[in-house]
Amino acid sequence: MTVDRRLLLRAAALAGLTAGSGALSACSSGPGTRPGAAPLSLAARPQPSDRATPGADPAGTPAAGSPAASGTAQPGAAVPPVPALPPLAAGTPEEVVNGPRDRPQIALTFHGQGDPAIAESVLRTAEQHGARVTVLVVGSWLDEQPQIARRILDGGHELGNHTQNHRNIAALTPDQVRQEIAECADRLQRLTGSIGRWFRPSAAQYASRTVRDQARLVGYEHCLSFDIDPRDYTDPGSDTVQKRVVNAVGNGSVVALHLGHRGTADAMPGILAGLAGRGLTAVTASELCA
């Protein structure tokens, strides 16, 4: 696999950064984050193309048979522009567990894999309620469903990286960790023009020091954890998923959910209604940490 030259240059630049910021973090870090770690600049992150994809409709959705729709990219092929991401607050840590507790916003984040029809149901429900979500996609899912990447972005949502094959990242060597992250990043770059801002480790709530280091080499300055886990992947039923989320969330919560489970999709209307009843708004992880 060829790593984008910009990412290599960027990794080299990051290696020269030194700690020195005393800014307070708007988002809370996980237990593995280095005390006093300096916030990392986002200025050098890969920039999306502002050119339209050949064969795309005016809204930017790839037409059937186009390179983006098929998941194949021709050399030099352009992709639709990625929606601009809000800048993160100064002091945002390497690993974000929750957002600021003084604003009535929460982030619904989703493991991106599974039946695309169920994923579409989740996205459509969110949009009907004016909510925006963050989807951490598995790269092998993008290989099977390349069109879903643009569908997520075109709905006003956010994309991130959840490794290529969803292996137990804690059991991998550093080189294997980097490969898992880089292969998914390559899919995101090819399909959307950006690797996304967030990386979430597979089969782990928190990223180890090794995982965070390898993620930075690929281009991810921030790993995204969570503080609310309704365990929807155990399929406890939509009512249970709804109650576990609504009863637990508060200002700044980051909720971990899964796109490929019917009970999660069925719980979404109740979750969003429950959030509204508590005066909470579902925004993307980047908006939460802005």
Rank of each mutant, 00 (worst) to 15 (best):
R187C: 00
A26D: 04
D143L: 08
R178S: 01
D4H: 11
R209W: 01
E158V: 06
G263A: 15
S140H: 08
V241N: 07
T192I: 07
A37P: 04
S194Q: 08
Q105V: 14
T163E: 10
R216N: 05
N247V: 09
D50P: 04
G139W: 02
T281H: 14
S253V: 01
S41K: 00
S66P: 00
Q105Y: 14
I152C: 10
S121L: 12
Q242N: 06
A282V: 11
P31N: 11
L17Y: 12
R6C: 08
G55F: 06
T72H: 13
I152S: 07
L24K: 13
S286L: 10
T281S: 15
T210V: 15
A131E: 03
R124Q: 14
I271V: 15
A43H: 12
A117D: 13
H166Y: 12
R124G: 07
Q113I: 12
A52P: 03
A38L: 04
Q214G: 07
L17C: 10
R132I: 06
Q105H: 15
F199M: 10
P48F: 04
T163H: 09
A119V: 02
A43M: 02
I271A: 09
S253K: 07
G196Q: 01
A56G: 12
T33R: 03
P54I: 01
R6Y: 00
L85H: 02
A117E: 11
D115G: 02
F226M: 01
G16I: 12
A63D: 09
V96D: 00
P269F: 01
I118M: 05
P104K: 05
I106T: 10
P93V: 07
R209H: 04
H222N: 14
S49L: 10
S49Q: 09
A64I: 15
A185T: 08
F110M: 03
Q205N: 10
L17E: 14
Q179A: 11
A290H: 09
L7Y: 00
V241H: 09
S140L: 05
S286N: 11
R212I: 05
G279F: 13
S253R: 04
G250T: 11
A69Q: 09
L40E: 12
I148F: 14
V122T: 06
I169S: 11
V122R: 03
T2A: 13
R51E: 15
E127C: 02
A204P: 03
G263T: 14
A90W: 00
G36A: 01
D154V: 11
D235S: 14
V255N: 05
Q74N: 04
L8F: 01
T163W: 10
D232G: 08
R200P: 12
G139Q: 06
F199D: 08
L14S: 10
G139H: 06
G250N: 10
M1S: 05
H222S: 02
N98K: 12
D227K: 06
G270P: 11
P81V: 02
Y206R: 13
P58W: 04
H129P: 08
G20K: 05
G65F: 06
G76R: 06
R244T: 14
W141L: 11
D232R: 04
H162R: 05
H261V: 12
V79N: 05
D232V: 10
D266I: 07
G22K: 13
G20V: 02
P174G: 09
Q145I: 07
A256Q: 13
G250I: 01
C289L: 06
V138S: 07
A15Q: 14
I271C: 04
